[in-house]
């Protein structure tokens, strides 16, 4: 059984209209050469880190990212380019979801374990992350750009929180702003609500 405290979050589904401006502000410059999916990811992750009051992650923290459709828009673009020529190099890189992990690591000047999991659900993503998480905890993200987009992130730190106040939670509840702690009890996801 592992319990985590939610020490920061960004719940943006869909993101606010001014999310690009906010991202530019956080980066200190307009992002270049990255696709919308990665921009959305950076926006959510950096907002989450700011909410947690952290500029970077501890070396033993981990980043886990999931998505239903990932970089499908960038992939469509490259497939179109490939009909008559080679794709643009940066366009090809944008088809690789794990590029976002590198960008995020670079932005935070951090090196560590980061992993992209495709097509699962947030609960299964947390299960994989929790199995490997150390004392530095997890930065856990869920990101898609279709249907207005969503970029949901949690900063999770290991917690010794005990007690019977945890209730069973559906995977989609993971990103509820009402949750203060999450717990994996065998295969069951449980949550403790904010007082």
């Amino acid at each position: 059984m592992k319990t985590f405290a939610v020490t920061g979050r960004c719940i943006a589904a869909p993101p606010p209209d001014d999310w690009r401006e906010s991202l530019t502000q956080m980066l200190g410059a307009k992002p270049r050469r990255i696709g919308t999916w990665a921009e959305l990811g950076l926006y959510g992750a950096l907002r989450c880190m700011a909410d947690a009051g952290e500029k970077t992650l501890p070396p033993d923290a981990q980043i886990w990212l999931g998505s239903r459709r990932g970089t499908y828009a960038a992939t469509d673009t490259v497939l179109d380019q490939l009909r008559e020529d080679l794709p643009m190099p940066l366009a090809f890189l944008q088809t690789q979801p794990s590029q976002l992990l590198a960008m995020l690591a670079a932005k935070m000047d951090w090196k560590g374990h980061a992993c992209f999991v495709a097509g699962t659900d947030p609960g299964a993503l947390l299960r994989l992350a929790a199995a490997q998480a150390g004392n530095g905890g997890i930065l856990l993200g869920w990101l898609d750009e279709m249907a207005g987009g969503e970029t949901n992130w949690l900063r999770l730190r290991p917690s010794a929180e005990a007690g019977a106040s945890f209730v069973a939670a559906a995977p989609d509840m993971l990103f509820s702003p009402q949750i203060s702690h999450v717990r994996l009890d065998k295969l069951e996801l449980k949550a403790r609500l904010l007082a």
């Binding site: 992939t75 490259v78 497939l79 080679l86 794709p87 190099p89 090809f92 890189l93 088809t95």
Partner: peptide, 12 residues
């Protein structure tokens, strides 16, 4: 697949 080969070729 051509996407991977084309992408690696594009990156030289």
């Amino acid at each position: 697949n051509r996407l991977t080969l084309g992408g690696f070729a594009a990156l030289q």
